[in-house]
Nucleic acid binder design. Structure first.
Lengths: 228, 228
DNA sequence: TTATGAAGTGAGTAATCACTCACTTAATTG
DNA sequence: CAATTAAGTGAGTGATTACTCACTTCATAA
């Protein structure tokens, strides 16, 4: 597929993506190394996790790590690189675009999108946690996150919001403000469910999400929804 | 060592707070050490910042650091401890309670609270950034953050929200959902202003905040506000 | 069968880590 | 003045760091 006009990842990350192996091309031990690194990086952070601890946890000699990954940082990139594909590849974005263009009520579109993205986030949580955590300290990761994930998502959202404002479906507020409200609702939901996991038992999760979307739609829609 | 209970941050923090010196009791060099550590911890993280780099940046011998702080972790606690006072001391919480009880329209109360907390956050940003970042990796800091800051704030908010629901000022939704919306709005505002700082030039900042509160109030109030 | 090379090992490397300590300096106090 | 003490120093500590390399093992291919 052609992706030459797209802003590329940082060189280091791009390089890593090119050398990515599919799971069945990998050795058993390489897989164990990656699993151990994911667990440790997520829990203690990249800099606080040593290669010796990764090796011990993977049940592998320390040298084996460097047979598969040139440096510790390369190992990090190999872990998080796939996340940028999973969340932003053209194929996936097509899914999102399809939901947006389905000509459903805005409330259902947003609910569907939230569920879609939240499920994806949950499936890949340990790796995404690493991405979010390490982005705070590594400018290249932060850049990739903002440029490849946030920016695209925001662009899609703003286009749709603008359209719905023009059709008087949304209130005549700044596009930026409405878009921010949409993102804030999801961000806040994720924050609360991670900060107070016991309050977000599986049964109540979707009810909570629907409450959040209810408030959001009540806040941005021009006409109040008919149903509660 | 690992057999005794995890030291509660309350204890560690209390100990640290007791030994805290006011700025004019501190040596010039101690102040420089703390400034250097704040800059480095905020930018690179605690584990990625070495004491030798802190010393170099502060223009001080490495041994001097340990004359003032027993360990590197004690230095961290000395930096972030005051944040828990600034944001949660009874004195400060009285300020917040006063705003809540001022019997103003909910919209103005929320706006006032947002401005109050955001100003406090901005004034202390480098240190608060360290608190938020390191909480991800240090369970004791996370615990102090949730128990001493988030929990109290949430309690206050929920009491007020419950009251306003009973008075039909807010919609009859779960208290938790409305409270979450209030926090999400501020959280999202902070996230956007940090992620896209160039879009949040000082002049537009308050307009952006008012837009956010407008949407929030529109979403949770039983009657739409009279004015835009 | 032999040759090749990837997978894996673990002892070993220099560099860096947080931290210590014997020491000097300078101000305070009895 | 003599004695004490806190502030500050910088060389030095053992432990740990990311990483290397000579080596073995073993499956595959010529």
């Amino acid at each position: 597929m052609a992706h030459e006009h797209k802003p590329l990842f940082d060189e280091a990350i791009q390089e890593m993506l090119n050398s990515l192996k599919t799971e069945d091309e990998m050795t058993e031990k390489q897989r164990r190394i990656m699993e151990a690194a994911i667990a440790l990086f997520a829990e203690k952070g990249f800099h606080a996790s040593s290669t010796s601890e990764i090796a011990r946890r993977a049940g592998v000699a320390e040298g084996t790590i460097f047979k598969h990954f040139k440096t510790k940082k390369d190992l990090l990139y190999a872990l998080i690189g796939p996340m940028f594909i999973k969340f932003a590849s053209p194929l996936i974005l097509k899914d999102v675009k399809q939901i947006i263009n389905e000509d459903l009520p805005a409330e259902e579109v947003i609910l569907k999108l939230y569920r879609n993205r939240l499920a994806l986030l949950e499936e890949n949580w340990p790796r995404m946690r690493i991405v979010l955590q390490e982005a705070l300290f590594h400018p290249d990761i932060m850049n990739a996150l903002l440029e490849n994930l946030v920016k695209d998502a925001r662009g899609l959202a703003e286009a749709s919001v603008k359209n719905r404002i023009e059709q008087s479906e949304f209130r005549p507020l700044p596009v930026k403000a409405i878009t921010r409200a949409i993102f804030s609702t999801m961000l806040g939901y994720v924050f609360f469910s991670k900060a107070f996991p016991d309050e977000y038992a599986n049964e109540d999760k979707d009810k909570d999400l629907r409450d959040a979307v209810d408030i959001l739609m009540y806040g941005i829609a021009n006409k109040r929804p008919d149903s509660l």
